[in-house]
Design a protein around this nucleic acid. Structure first.
Lengths: 252, 252
DNA sequence: ACAAAAGTGTTCCCGGTACACCCATGG
DNA sequence: CCATGGGTGTACCGGGAACACTTTTGT
């Protein structure tokens, strides 16, 4: 019986061997901002069924290894997919429906193709916010693609449900504190900040109120620099001061 | 090789067999209110090490079965422990430290005694709120015990951490909506409600403000009935209207 | 000059918080 | 009559939301 189809739990061996835990995975909802659009990282999967090949989409995710926490799995996955480290990452929900991998024909087809998934798998959903400018496309896995949120249709497995749950959670978390800086370049205008806020929240907000609130935060610091070469009044740049932010957060 | 030490993932069989998933468990922080105290459900574990027997405490938890969701595991666990159904239950975090089952000598001793835990186990934390009056002690597992929150010391594994995280999450959730009715009998006084609130929040609040807020909720409905036989002015009873509550919640 | 986005103040309402005294009942 | 907890109102403050016009710049 070849070792590769056995997992660590089946072994009597007392030496710790790094192995994959097939019943537990992590799926990441990674949001990025670029070209004025809110995007999510998906993996392209070509699937054969009924003799036709279709393209389906999937959230990036991996099974956890026996020597990592779920957080470490999420960090590793994100690094492998985008080449990025030091990303804001947060676990938000466990998905464990019995039929989550077996809802539609292309779910079965994907599983047949990859020869996995005979097993029950529960998954821990994470969300992450990243700035597309910081990502070199060369570092990204070739199947990975940033797709605009508003155009996403069905996804493989229960990934559409996971995506929607992540968005809901992000909106909730954002209501408390605008952790949007992860999505933005180092210097940004308040209009940039507001654009992203509105994209995520799915509604527009009053400019004056939004600016007042943003400026009142000590961790959003104005820079002397302004835009140049724009065909309208030049906006002032701001930056995010993580030290002040972290200090304020730990006071709560 | 006896089947019992294999888990479902090791089988080639295509028939679904209900089996336990050894890498995934659910632990429940079940809070109850009785005798004016806030209590948590723990299991008594007698553990031998260094030739001595000590009593240690543990949160109720179980490994999930291949035919249940983590929510179903939590519901089943709670039913098996307390005989209660229809309880407010909420998943709040996944705990997956590598050393979570191996921090102290009595952790190892427990694992030796039960012959499990050679495996890496991640656990999904749930919290629940129950009314101790609704629980017949006869239905409770004999090792289970309601212990006052304020007197809890160390627990086995990372269960103290799970308990603390649950309390923090409950305080956070409570701040939004007082879901305390689960802890109370069908009819209760506003003072009862405030007592529990203060026990959980760990601080006292202004009586007038608390009452104003409670009365303003449509789902807290005053009854005509009052206390009898008390050596002071009789308090009015209130009840919780779940229909109104559910309706308000789904509007958010 | 005009198009295009930047920038700016005031008012209203609501929820949270601080604060102190009289009322009903049983013993 | 007194001990015990039940029950009540007002004022302040801060954050959120609604609302419209002037300023700067490039073309």
């Amino acid at each position: 019986m070849p070792r590769s189809i056995l997992t660590v739990k089946c072994m009597k061996s007392s030496t710790p061997i790094t192995e994959t835990l097939r019943h537990i995975s992590v799926d990441g909802v990674v949001l990025g901002y670029g070209d004025g659009k809110l995007k999510v990282l998906l993996r392209r999967e070509s699937i054969e069924h009924d003799g036709k090949v279709t393209i389906e989409w999937k959230l990036p995710g991996h099974h956890i290894r026996s020597n990592e926490t779920v957080e470490e799995t999420a960090i590793r996955t994100l690094y492998e997919q985008t080449g990025m480290r030091n990303i804001f990452l947060k676990q938000f929900h466990v998905f464990s429906s019995l039929d989550r991998l077996h809802r539609r024909e292309f779910d079965f087809a994907w599983i047949r193709k990859h020869g996995v998934g005979e097993w029950r798998v529960i998954t821990v959903g994470f969300y992450a916010l990243v700035n597309l400018k910081n990502i070199s496309l060369a570092d990204m896995s070739p199947e990975a693609e940033w797709r605009e949120i508003s155009g996403i249709g069905e996804l493989i497995f229960d990934h559409r449900e996971i995506l929607d749950a992540a968005l809901e959670k992000i909106r909730h978390d954002l209501y408390l504190e605008p952790v949007l800086f992860e999505l933005l370049p180092d210097k940004f205008t308040l209009t940039d900040l507001q654009n992203i806020y509105e994209l995520i929240m799915g509604r527009s907000v009053d400019k004056r109120n939004f600016r007042r609130k943003a400026i009142s935060k000590a961790y959003i610091v104005p820079l002397a620099e302004r835009q140049t070469g724009v065909a309208h009044r030049a906006a002032g740049y701001y930056m995010f001061n993580r030290k002040i932010f972290d200090k304020e957060m730990q006071e709560d």
